[in-house]
């Protein structure tokens, strides 16, 4: 690929990036840029879809009609996020069905946070507050990502994520005004989710193989450690407002760096969960596989029906 036209295309790609302009689907792009995007967007889309499960499990047990509606709407939003992101991925030439198959065959990953179980209703609040909160930190910069369809999908996603975080925070705040049992439930939930939430930003920069290239391409805009720091600094005052204790005795404000010092999560646990030994990995993928396979006959039926309508439109009303 060293011919003159190819070089011109590459130069134009680089120039577009240098102007902080967007790359659009029909533009020439290096294969590795495209591959990285597919990997990142697919992983993001899978995370939205798998992420429906831990909270979805509580829709049937939501303790008030209002909470039931909020939770159902939230889980529904996550389906929408997955849908927007799969669509963005499809502009790169990979279909949703292919991606779903990669997911259920274990060939593509999703965020490891969803391999942790939800054990109480407080987890619904904690996930909204910490997990969606961490997601927002990760995702707001992606609205400016270099790939047009991804950035546009992220704008829609981020609008709804901010609502998710608010509803989570509001649930926890309400529970903290409730009974002692409820307050204990909130604290226990925060204790469990704090470390996995910190892991959501990925391994420390020193150990991250993709960060540098992704930043050069404008696919990522901030490093893992920068985003993690931002998340911690944002969360500490919120925890104080809630009246919960973050489970890190070494979490203190550092005047010099203008941010908090905090303990790193257990990166060995992180690697285990990513490589499949988290508490819920098998369960999450099996759930998705079952839904996909159980729905096959419905999808086929709709396709067959659409084909028939095209072939015999005049017989639409006829009894077969």
């Amino acid at each position: 690929m060293t011919t003159a036209p190819a070089q011109a295309e590459e130069a134009s790609f680089e120039a577009t990036l240098a102007r902080h302009d967007r790359i659009e689907p029909r533009d020439w792009m290096p294969e590795r840029y495209r591959a990285t995007l597919v990997r990142q967007i697919a992983q993001h889309a899978h995370s939205e879809i798998i992420g429906m499960q831990p909270e979805g499990a509580w829709i049937t047990r939501a303790p008030s009609l209002r909470r039931k509606a909020i939770l159902l709407a939230k889980v529904q939003d996550e389906a929408g996020h997955g849908l927007y992101l799969y669509s963005a991925c499809e502009t790169l030439g990979v279909s949703r069905q292919e991606l779903t198959e990669k997911l259920i065959e274990g060939k593509q990953k999703y965020s490891s946070i969803f391999n942790y179980p939800t054990l109480s209703y407080a987890d619904v609040g904690t996930i909204g507050w910490l997990v969606d909160g961490a997601a927002i930190c990760n995702q707001v910069p992606l609205c400016r990502t270099s790939y047009g369809p991804y950035g546009r999908a992220m704008i829609r996603v981020c609008k709804e994520e901010s609502f998710h975080q608010r509803q989570g925070f509001e649930l926890l705040a309400t529970m903290m005004r409730g009974t002692d049992a409820q307050r204990a439930m909130v604290q226990e939930s925060v204790d469990r989710f704090w470390w996995p939430a910190l892991m959501m930003f990925g391994p420390p920069d020193a150990d991250s193989s993709h960060t540098a290239q992704s930043m050069a391409w404008g696919i990522k805009r901030d490093t893992n450690d920068e985003l993690r720091q931002k998340f911690v600094d944002m969360t500490v005052p919120q925890a104080r407002a809630l009246g919960v204790t973050l489970p890190d005795p070494d979490l203190v404000w550092n005047d010099e760096k203008g941010g908090h010092d905090f303990t790193q999560p257990d990166w060995a646990e992180f690697r285990d969960v990513v490589s499949g030994s988290g508490p819920c990995n098998a369960q999450r993928v099996a759930h998705r596989r079952r839904a996909h396979e159980d729905g096959a006959w419905v999808r086929e039926a709709a396709s067959a029906f659409a084909r028939r309508q095209q072939q015999e439109p005049q017989q639409q009303e006829a009894v077969s």
Binding site: I59, V75, L83, A291, G295
Partner: peptide, 10 residues
Amino acid sequence: SQWASNAPDL
């Protein structure tokens, strides 16, 4: 609501 995350398609 029990169809959430279980429906035939998104």
